[in-house]
Design a protein around this nucleic acid. Sequence first.
DNA 1: TGCAATTTAAATGTCAGACTTTTAAATGTC
DNA 2: GACATTTAAAAGTCTGACATTTAAATTGCA
Lengths: 265, 265
Amino acid sequence: MKTDRDNSADLSAQIADAIRDSIVSGALIVDQRLPSEAELADAYDVSRPTIREALKRLAAQSLIRTQRGAFGGAFVNRLSFDEARAQLATTTTLLISMNDVSFDRACEARFSLERACAPLAADRRGEDHLAAMAAEIARQGRADLSDEAFCASDVAFHLALTEAAGNPVLTYHLAGAIEAMQPLMNMITYTARSRAAIIARHRAILDSAAARDGDGINAALDDLETYTKSLAHMVMAERAARAKQRAAERADHNTAAALFGFEQS
Amino acid sequence: MKTDRDNSADLSAQIADAIRDSIVSGALIVDQRLPSEAELADAYDVSRPTIREALKRLAAQSLIRTQRGAFGGAFVNRLSFDEARAQLATTTTLLISMNDVSFDRACEARFSLERACAPLAADRRGEDHLAAMAAEIARQGRADLSDEAFCASDVAFHLALTEAAGNPVLTYHLAGAIEAMQPLMNMITYTARSRAAIIARHRAILDSAAARDGDGINAALDDLETYTKSLAHMVMAERAARAKQRAAERADHNTAAALFGFEQS
DNA sequence: TGCAATTTAAATGTCAGACTTTTAAATGTC
DNA sequence: GACATTTAAAAGTCTGACATTTAAATTGCA
């Protein structure tokens, strides 16, 4: 095993890449034990801390898991759909927050993706999926539900819809996207939204799913998308108006206050 | 800053989580410099190697980048769409290979996702997108193209289609899925596929996009999905038949050969 | 003999301290 | 003012040690 000492990249990164390649290519299979840190250090001709950094990189991507103790070590990890979905959701959340994606674009992407499961969901939904969706709708109707809990139930409802499509790969992608974006959308619209309006759309989705009407599901999702966007536009317009008003009021004051960073609440 | 020493989790994992939370919550913003490793070690009351392991975990997720030298250090990284897409693709590849997803399921998910961009692509495609797709089709027609290059061009063609939708978030999800699954699909079908058949479908997609016909795009994608699945079924049936034949031939031989691991090519 | 308690060894987790290399800023020189 | 040199800060790496965990091997006891 050789590493390129003249390479600009870290040794730990090179080693991590080498091991990752072995996993992706199938040379290392699920649950297989890697050599111990000391053996790897010897094999790659580096010190143990360097090997450890490489292993931590892989652990951060859920590619391996480690176990202490005798006969412990690093094992190739079976990546589960749930783990992968959680990773996808956090990555997507960060991606959106760091790249000033407009609300409309994020909303559009989220619903475009969710509509991808409608035909399959209409075709394959079982009673259990309908029941799960109905249960979330019922929960959403409870007046004593916190905003956070309402949002979580909203996510759960849409997750149930994607699961009705009976395709875990599709669910992984869609649920990851929804998990990432629904909370962002809620954060913006929760002051203005009507729970009843959202529940009505959820019910339309459920009814269409029950009737095995894929186009009906998509129509309801379209409707929900339009409603969400209009809410966001309202909220944004209001914020802009308040900001403008504040600016005008500031202009009436003497400039000194502004210079000291005075800002009216 | 405190860490739970009684916690079963690694210190480096705890610290990585703490820093990640700071980034996700916005307490640390893009391009902001983290304290030096020595300062972090002091702040969290751990040794520098432990801090380094935590930072490597974050680096593996592209959450930070590090820079050597004076005034270097760890900086919050702006997650780019391309980086995120590459991560998504490798994660998806592993997810599928480790969870024995059937070819049909993977194929179904891939095309269901791609269809999500059709309405938007039809609406927003520009001349540049059409040109990019046409260029890939032209490349695919060259007889001297290797299988790998054909596959890469195939991916590039579909990437161009997703980009025509003009929504980077959507492109991120769809292109990540396509990048992950197209090579898998090629690996199975490349022995049986007809390049002309694929090019014809690509041309149908391009023509529909040019005509701003979203339904036409989806029809062509449906067609491509059906073709791909039928190819796979053919290949699998052939393999199964060969395996059966081999088994029958083995039975004719004396058992000794089998005991020595003899296997007919 | 069979089971329980103990020991042991192998492995990861953590630490301390030193040295190397890189890099940009500060300084000095022409 | 432009260019070369010095310097200091920081990441990268290594060595060696110790702590902790864990399962297997061993021992002790009934």
